[in-house]
Amino acid sequence: MSAIEQYLLDTYRASQQGAPMPPPPGRDDVAVLRSARTYAQARAVMDGGSGRHPWRAALRRILVRPRPC
């Protein structure tokens, strides 16, 4: 059963029982990713590292290359 099918089933059950509707699938995905990133940055600072995002530095190293003169 897909997430959409489960959502529709849960919505139907909630409407039959008078319960609050469930959130649609994928609504909180961005918030979860942001909290995971924040947690990783906090752990890095607590471990004595940099609080900057490691992916940005890696992308900058890959994408921004020195130009030959």
Score class of each variant (00 low, 15 high):
L33F: 13
H53N: 15
T11C: 15
P66H: 02
R65M: 06
P68F: 00
Y12R: 14
R52E: 10
R43L: 05
R65K: 11
A3T: 08
D10A: 09
P24M: 03
G18Y: 06
R13L: 12
G48Q: 09
S50Y: 02
P23W: 04
Q41R: 09
P68I: 03
P24A: 02
D10F: 01
V64A: 04
D47W: 10
A19T: 02
R60H: 11
H53Y: 15
Y7A: 00
V32P: 01
A40H: 13
M21D: 01
P54Y: 12
C69R: 13
G18C: 10
G51M: 06
P24T: 03
P20N: 04
D10N: 08
A31Y: 07
A58E: 06
R34E: 06
Y39Q: 14
V30S: 07
R67L: 12
R60P: 02
A44L: 01
V64L: 12
Y12W: 12
L9E: 10
C69V: 00
A19F: 00
G48F: 03
Q6P: 00
T11W: 14
D47V: 01
Q41C: 03
M21W: 04
W55R: 14
L63W: 06
L59F: 08
R34W: 03
S2V: 07
V45G: 03
L33I: 08
S2Y: 09
I62Y: 02
R60Y: 06
R43Q: 13
A3I: 08
M46K: 14
W55D: 10
S15C: 13
A19H: 07
R13K: 15
Y39I: 01
V32L: 13
L63A: 05
R60M: 05
V32S: 09
